[in-house]
Design a protein around this nucleic acid. Sequence first.
DNA 1: GAAGATATGTGAATCGTTTCACAACAACGA
DNA 2: TCGTTGTTGTGAAACGATTCACATATCTTC
Lengths: 217, 217
Amino acid sequence: MPMKHDIAQRLSQYRSVLYKLKALGFVRVFSDNLGDALEISPALVRKDFSTFSLTGNKRGGYRIDDLLDKLNRLLGKDKVQRIIIVGCGKIGQALMSYSGFTREGIQVVAGFDSNAAVIAPQASIPILDIKELKTYVKREGIRIAIVAVPDNSASHVFDLLRAAEIKGILNFAPVPLKGAEGCVVRNINIGLELENLFYLVRFAGKVPPQPAARPAG
Amino acid sequence: MPMKHDIAQRLSQYRSVLYKLKALGFVRVFSDNLGDALEISPALVRKDFSTFSLTGNKRGGYRIDDLLDKLNRLLGKDKVQRIIIVGCGKIGQALMSYSGFTREGIQVVAGFDSNAAVIAPQASIPILDIKELKTYVKREGIRIAIVAVPDNSASHVFDLLRAAEIKGILNFAPVPLKGAEGCVVRNINIGLELENLFYLVRFAGKVPPQPAARPAG
DNA sequence: GAAGATATGTGAATCGTTTCACAACAACGA
DNA sequence: TCGTTGTTGTGAAACGATTCACATATCTTC
C-alpha cells in the first residue's frame, strides 16, 4: 500500500497559507510565495499542484480562489467532518473543547469513556459509555476517532474501534497502534516527540552519528 | 542543515520496544524482531545500529541491556529532562499533569501564562506570569519548552522564547513556527493531522493522484 | 503585433533513504 | 577439530522524493 504521506500534509498547509494570503487581499500567488511559506522549493509546489491538476497561469501564477476551491474539495472541506473522542480524561476533554476544530470544519459530536464519573449524556457534547460506541458509530456514520486513553487501555479501545468499523484513528496514547485493513492510524506520541527534540537539541550543529570514542585499537 | 530526522525517532521506538521485551524476560533480540515491531525491514534496523556503533553478536543478535544502556545515553535518558509549558489553557494544563512524562524521565517544572486567573506560583507545578519567563529559563537552565497557546499569541510567545534562548520547542499552536538559528522547532498541528487523516481515509485503496477527469482532448 | 519579461509544467538529473545480497563471524553439534 | 547454521555488518543496487533546467505559454509594453 504505497501511499504518499507528505504530500497530503502539504496540501493542508497550502490551504492554510492561501487563506492567510486571501485575508491580506491577495488574489494570485506564485509558486515562490508558497515555497517560502512552507520552506520548500518552488519546484516542489508546482509538482504537487501538477499532481492534482491544480493548474495556474503561465504568467500570473495561480488564482487563490481557484486553488482554495479545489483544495477544499480534495480535502473534504466542503462538508463538516464529524468525529468522536474516545477517552475523556484531561487530554480528551481538552480536545473536546478545542476551538481550533470548529474553525477547521471539524465537529466533535461525542466523547466516550468507561469511567462512570465523567459520563454526561446531556452535555452539549455528550459523553457516553464506551459500551455504546459501536451502536453510535454505526448509526451516525462516524469514520474518524481520536484516541486519548491511558496506555493500558489503548489496545482494547483499538479493538472496539475496529469492531465498529472506524476508518481512521488519531492516536494520542503512548502505545503505537498499527494500522490495519480498512483503518488508517496516525500515532502522535508526545513523549516521543520530546525525546526526539532532546536529541536534536543535543546534537544541533554537531555530527550526530559518531558516539564519542572508538573502542580503542 | 541536513539532519537525519526519522532515525532519531526510530531510536526512541527501539528503546520503547526493548523495554517491553526486557519486561517479558528476553535477554537478546534480533534485527528481525525489532523490524517486525516497528514495521520496518531488519536491514534498516541493522543500518541504524551500525550508524551509532550499536554492535551485536554475529550469531546471538543484540544484548538488550547493552542496547538500552547505549540508547539511553544517546537519547539523554540518563538524566531527568526538565521542560516548561507556555500557555496553561486546557491543553497546556492537561499536558502539565500528563503521567506519561514522568514515566519517560521528563519533568514539567513550571507553566507560564499571561492570564492572571490561572497564575499559581505555589502549586506543585508552579504557574508563573509570562513576564518571568526569561529570568526563569536562564536561572534554571531550561532548554526545551512546549507551546500550547492560541494561534494569535503564538508568534509573540515564540519571540519571548527565542529571547530566553530556548533551544527546542514542541509547538501545539495551530500556527507553524519556523525553526531558527539555535532553536529547533517541532510543530504538531492537531487539526492538520485530522485533515490528513480525512484525506487518507477518503482515498484509501483508490489512486489518490488523479482527480477524476482530464480536460478532454 | 512583435519583442521582452516572467512564471508555469514537466522530463531528466540528483540526492537521501531503504533494501538487497553476501562476506565475515560466532555458536553449536558431531 | 571441523562442518553446519544463523545472524550481523556493510558496500552496492534500487527506490522515492526533490530539485534542476528549460520549453512553453501568457502578459505587458512600445
